[in-house]
């Protein structure tokens, strides 16, 4: 099923919500590496594993998270790219 950027982002937020992360203030620009990003390493791993299961993809760590400034937007773009490759 083809999804656009916004749809992918909304699904990411759904996964965050399911893990009791407050998504009210989350936007594309939010930095994953910001000191005040409210996620510890255990929850971070849970979220990413849930995203893998949700989208049926495998996240390549350096590609998914290795951007100069990793944001929810860059993660969204990465997942969108994986999905696009799957449908080709």
């Amino acid at each position: 099923m083809k999804r656009n950027r916004q749809e992918v982002f909304m699904e990411i937020l759904t996964v965050f919500n399911e893990n009791n992360v407050n998504t009210d203030a989350l936007s594309f620009d939010v930095r994953l590496d910001a000191p005040d990003f409210p996620i510890d390493s255990v929850l971070f791993m849970k979220l990413l594993v849930d995203l893998e299961n949700r989208f049926q993809i495998e996240l390549n760590y350096p590609e998914a998270l290795g951007a100069e400034k990793p944001t929810l937007g860059s993660l969204t773009d990465y997942i969108e790219g994986c999905l696009a490759r799957k449908t080709q």
Binding site: L32, D33, S41, F44, M45, V49, L65, P70
Partner: peptide, 9 residues
């Protein structure tokens, strides 16, 4: 902090 966040993943 980012290293610690991404460590287990």
């Amino acid at each position: 902090k980012w290293f610690q966040t991404t460590y287990f993943f």
